[in-house]
Simulated assay, not measured.
Amino acid sequence: MAAIEVIGLLKCYGDLRAVDGVTLSVEEGEFFGILGPNGAGKTTLLELVEGLRRPDGGTIRLFGESPWPRQPQLLPRMGVQLQASAFFERLTAREQIRTFAALYGFGPGRADEWLERVGLTDKADTRTEDLSGGQSQRLSIACALVHDPDVVFLDEPTASLDPQARRNLWDLLSSLNQSGRTVVLTTHHMDEAETLCDRVGIMDRGRLLELDSPRALVRGLDAPVRIRVVPDGLDVGDAAGLRGVDEAVLEDTSLVLTTRRPAEVLTQLAAADRLDGLQVQAATLEDVFLDLTGREYRA
């Protein structure tokens, strides 16, 4: 059964179509990612599905019901972490999350458990305005999860986190998904999407450009593989003459071979004992993203 169904969704601001005819579905228990450059419409799409904005056209179904106008029976089933954290003023981290838990009928024990799960026990008595950006982000995520929702919406959840906290959050989100919850997130980190998501949708200028698993999207790009070795007597001309090599160039102290037949090229290099410094770089989700959305700077 689909947890989320979106058909022909439209949201306009004047002449700007922030979401332009998007159609997609997210299955219950799926980990779904929405990718796109700044201004692509990712956050607006989430806010429409969450019932925070009224669509100008199309339909949305969240567990079979329309989230707009706001449906009180849907609210306990959703956990929402917004791009910008907004907390009650002058509350400590413990008071903040206990307040969120109480709004949904949960006691302080559940709140304290989530403080521990996001690594904020030592900051429990710190006022929210005195938390660092990364600590505020983790508290925001804990507040979105404290009431045990069926579907979790996370808008760039690791944007302010250091690498260690980011990886710890990956483990937490994976465990949530494995327990049957539906997770929908936006992110600018392609490695995050590749690691966590069952499927991703890539948006640009309000439109959904592609939707599939990360592996399928990379496979569909049909990009060449780059093989990097130490030259060690193998010149560019000899390397270019190997079967399956499309191009051979020197980059700094390495010889880089471009090919769509990597197994054949590697076999020849191994036979000639030319594997020193070997690195094989295949296409990634980032290559797919750039191929679809371009490389120009976005505001």
Rank of each mutant, 00 (worst) to 15 (best):
A263Q: 14
L45W: 12
W114I: 05
A86M: 06
R110E: 15
L221F: 03
V200F: 04
S160Q: 02
T158L: 02
V245R: 07
I7G: 00
A223Y: 13
P163M: 02
L250E: 10
G277S: 06
F88A: 15
T259D: 05
A299I: 10
R17N: 03
L82Y: 12
D291T: 12
L24D: 09
M190S: 07
T23V: 11
F63N: 03
S175E: 15
D150F: 06
E50F: 04
R127I: 12
V49R: 06
T293P: 05
H188Q: 13
F63P: 05
F32Y: 12
L45E: 02
M1Y: 10
E113R: 06
D287E: 07
V49N: 11
A248H: 11
G201K: 07
L278C: 01
G79L: 07
R228K: 08
T92R: 13
A3N: 04
K123I: 02
L173Y: 02
T126G: 06
P163H: 01
F106W: 07
G220E: 00
E47Q: 08
G134K: 10
E192M: 09
D246Y: 01
D287T: 02
E296M: 07
L250Y: 05
L208R: 00
F106C: 10
F153V: 05
W170F: 13
R167D: 09
L242M: 10
L75G: 07
R181W: 13
L120A: 10
S132I: 05
R226K: 11
V229D: 00
V249M: 11
G109I: 00
Q268G: 03
A270L: 13
H189S: 11
S254A: 15
A263D: 15
G233T: 13
I34T: 04
P69Y: 14
G57N: 05
V19M: 06
A216M: 03
E113I: 02
G180R: 09
D171S: 15
F100T: 03
I34V: 14
D20Y: 01
S254M: 14
I4F: 12
D204I: 01
V146F: 02
L169I: 09
A101T: 04
M78I: 14
V230T: 09
A263E: 15
L74Q: 06
V19Y: 09
Q135P: 03
L145V: 04
R167A: 04
A159C: 01
P69C: 09
P76Y: 05
M190V: 03
P72N: 01
F289E: 07
L52H: 10
L176W: 13
E30L: 11
D125A: 09
I4H: 07
D155S: 02
A223H: 06
L48R: 07
D15S: 11
R53W: 03
V236A: 14
E113C: 00
L217W: 11
V151D: 00
Q135F: 10
G277N: 03
V118F: 02
A248L: 12
V26C: 02
R243W: 08
R70C: 13
G14N: 03
R261E: 15
L10H: 14
S213T: 15
D252F: 13
G107W: 12
S213N: 06
R199Y: 13
R243H: 08
V256T: 06
Q71D: 12
D198I: 04
